[in-house]
Computed example of a mutant assay.
Amino acid sequence: MKYRTDLAIERMEMAVSKADDSGDKAGGKREGSPAGGEADGISVEKEECGDGVSVTRIEITSLAGEARLEKPMGNYITIEAEGITEGAEETKEKAGQVIAGELSRLIKFHSRLKVLVAGLGNAMVTPDSLGPAAVSKIRVTNHLFEMFGADEDDEMSRVSCIAPGVTATTGMETAEIVAEIARLVRPEVVIVIDSLAARDIQRLNTTVQITDTGISPGAGTGNHRTGIDEKTVGARVVAIGVPTVIDITTVIGDALADNVENVEKMERYMEEYDRQMIVTSTDIDMLIKDFSDIIANGINKTLHPGIYS
């Protein structure tokens, strides 16, 4: 079965599982990349942060690692916080702090830092509205620098924001819109926020992924658009996403995991009738609000340390 996922941590788990299965079939157990180790151009580091929040940092360091995880070389940071779905305030607060800390590793604040934040997705479709919801809560400051003729500030970055919509409603490639705005703003860093797809239902609405390799809008749901990365926008791109949807085929396949015959029948049925369905949770509206708050707070703390301490 071809699983859809935007998460590097799930790609790694699938690669390890595949390697282990190959070892079993060859007559001996062959272990995949262990936590904290490095194999095939992939290094992994895990950390428990308290209040139910953990971080897994994956770095792809070679072409072999790229091929294994089907992701470009770079850093992939996964923050997992299951308590968010239960409304735990301490988990939300801790998740925001961890996001700010991880972003600060990738984006070093300085008095002349200029950043463009783009909230990707469709504001009218709740599972896809994370980007527009989060970007509406970012403290925008570019106009203040213009108003006072300032070139630098020790407390805050020069931040511009945009919610470019989706191709179906604008008729334009989102990457082209972001690239054109970046040409006008000339940021040092572009931060993009988007909804993602997961392979494991346990990671639905409990996980945040941060990467410095850019993003391909719609890739996890099979709707590939032009990528938003340093090559296409002319500035370093840091992407932040939350898996809000999962392929129904994956859910059914996992439920039937112990019955291979039924899994094969299900796969044939889906292929024959071309039933491509993406599902989300019933409380997605509240989760979008929670995660947009958490992500916006993390970004504001990173970009405006003198205001959000």
Rank of each mutant, 00 (worst) to 15 (best):
H143K: 13
A133S: 15
V117T: 05
S111E: 15
R158G: 00
R158E: 07
E89A: 14
V135A: 12
A133K: 13
I84Q: 06
E90M: 14
F145N: 10
K114A: 11
F148W: 04
K94N: 05
L144S: 08
F148R: 07
R139C: 06
T167S: 12
E155R: 06
D151G: 15
E152P: 07
I77C: 09
M156H: 11
P127W: 03
V98R: 03
R158Y: 08
I79K: 07
P127E: 01
L120G: 07
S136C: 00
I162L: 14
T170Q: 00
C161V: 15
S111Q: 11
F148L: 14
V117F: 06
E90Q: 12
I162K: 05
G96D: 02
G131A: 01
T141W: 03
I138P: 05
P132S: 07
A163M: 02
G96E: 03
L144M: 09
E90K: 15
E86G: 07
P164A: 11
D151F: 13
E89L: 12
I162G: 05
V135P: 02
L130Y: 01
T85K: 15
A123D: 11
M147Q: 14
Y76A: 12
V98A: 03
E86K: 10
S160I: 01
E86V: 01
T85M: 10
A118V: 04
D153C: 15
P132E: 01
A168M: 05
V166D: 05
S136Y: 00
K92R: 12
D153V: 02
T85Q: 10
S136K: 11
P132H: 02
G83H: 03
L106C: 09
L106A: 13
T169K: 13
T91H: 06
A123E: 13
V98G: 01
T169P: 01
A163Q: 04
V125T: 10
E86S: 09
A118P: 04
I77K: 00
S160A: 15
L113H: 11
T167A: 15
N122W: 01
A134F: 00
A118C: 05
I138W: 04
E93D: 10
T169S: 11
E93W: 00
A150M: 15
F145G: 07
E146F: 14
F148C: 08
G87Q: 11
F145L: 12
A118N: 06
F148P: 13
V166Q: 09
F145E: 05
C161S: 14
G165E: 08
G165N: 10
R112V: 01
Y76L: 04
N122V: 01
M156C: 07
A81M: 10
Y76R: 08
I79Q: 01
I107L: 03
M147E: 12
E93P: 01
A81G: 13
Y76S: 08
H110S: 08
S104L: 01
R158C: 14
D128G: 12
